[in-house]
Amino acid sequence: MMERRTLSGVVMRRMLLITNNRLFFGLCRPGLSVVAALEGCNDASTPLTSLDVVRIARDTIHRGWVLAHHPLYGNVRPRLQPFRTILLLEPERFVDGRPEPDLLSLHLISEAMTVYESERESLALVDAVPESLARDCAFLDAELMKETLAQAGVPATWSSDRTITCCRGQREGERL
């Protein structure tokens, strides 16, 4: 799933991590772009909502990118979990030069949008959540993505306490 077979051999498939969870903002791996879903792009920027993360992922899936995991991981409760993280893989199927949307990704992301839009008024907002809840929710969000990231060849180097240690480095964030 992670390698793309080309005539010249196996190529690491580019990946996109769309997230409003600060624990991931510093994560950097070759072939992985972290799209920090933020309003504005300086330190004072406010994280976008979990619904925004799903919407950005949907528009990207419409352009052929493929879901690595179910967007509603973690028994989703938009009212209780302000963070959302979605890993997408580079388009794989092309029809006369244009990427062909992946049907399962399309189906799952539109179902996810339906769930999030039905709770649009009561979304938990990153900055409106009490500190104790925010810390645990961010950590749980990262934990639940661990398996997906590991299968995608991105070993998550966060220790089991509440912060993620990751390498500082230029974030190849692709502004969407």
């Binding site: 879901l67 995991h69 993505m145 997906t148 299968q151």
Partner: peptide, 8 residues
């Protein structure tokens, strides 16, 4: 009920 689509 794993999270990745490949596992599903």
């Amino acid at each position: 009920e794993n999270v990745t689509l490949a596992d599903k």
